[in-house]
């Protein structure tokens, strides 16, 4: 495992910590898209079906358990916690799940490595992760006052994807015969989705302004 992969995973973990901090400590999920969080829970549930059958390392297994556990915890908080759920911007978070789930599943049936249930679901999770941030980005654009934790959460998620790209470049040059086109192309698409957000995040940060996205 190279440094970019480790930093990418840690950034991903930190994004979850930031989000849980906001939800658990401040008891607010304002500006957070439940649609995106539900899509992430679905991503992890379909990708980590191999958790007990396919052992890579203790590190991988522990991280899988953490991402599964936290993603469902976040969804639970936003849907059921009596204080947190009242801070959810339901009227603004209008993106429809099926508009992302159905095309991703169709694509996974068409383009996959092996035609087995586990492989198709794994591929589906890769495609879905690439676009799962979409409802969150739409919600951010509609939010007038984006708080620091929400801005930082999305920034960390984007940074995690960027670091994974660097990890793949390192692996390509250091591991003989290493290639994974499905993951690479999805990862590039996923990182590109953050480009616009990054531009405004850095611009506002440099001008010492509060984060706001043009609508």
């Amino acid at each position: 495992m190279n440094i970019f992969r480790l930093c990418g995973d840690m950034t991903h973990l930190l994004s979850v910590v930031v989000l849980l901090l906001k939800i658990h400590t401040i008891k607010s999920c304002a500006g957070i898209s439940l649609k995106t969080q539900e899509l992430y829970a679905l991503v992890f549930a379909t990708r980590y079906l191999d958790i007990f059958t396919h052992h890579v390392s203790l590190y991988n297994t522990v991280m899988k358990i953490i991402f599964l556990g936290t993603s469902f915890t976040i969804v639970w908080y936003m849907r059921h916690h009596k204080v947190v759920r009242q801070t959810y911007d339901k009227e603004q978070d209008t993106f429809k799940h099926y508009m992302l789930i159905i095309p991703c599943f169709a694509l996974a049936l068409l383009i996959k490595t092996k035609f087995t249930p586990l492989e198709v679901l794994w591929t589906f999770s890769i495609y879905l992760e690439a676009v799962a941030i979409f409802p969150q980005l739409v919600l951010l654009q509609r939010t007038k006052n984006i708080d620091n934790l929400t801005g930082n959460y999305v920034f960390l998620l984007g940074a995690y994807r960027g670091l994974y790209l660097l990890n793949w470049i390192v692996r390509y040059f250091t591991e003989k015969g290493y290639r994974q086109w499905i993951t690479w192309i999805s990862g590039i698409v996923q990182t590109a989705l953050y480009a616009d957000f990054f531009y405004y995040y850095i611009k506002c940060w440099r001008n010492n302004e509060k984060l706001h996205l043009p609508s």
């Binding site: 992969r5 995973d9 991903h12 191999d50 396919h54 890579v56 991988n60 991280m63 899988k64 991402f67 490595t113 794994w122 994974y164 990890n167 015969g177 290493y178 290639r179 994974q180 086109w181 499905i182 993951t183």
Partner: peptide, 10 residues
Amino acid sequence: TEDTKEHDEL
């Protein structure tokens, strides 16, 4: 081209 690695990333 076929992907060559087992799924070893998160």
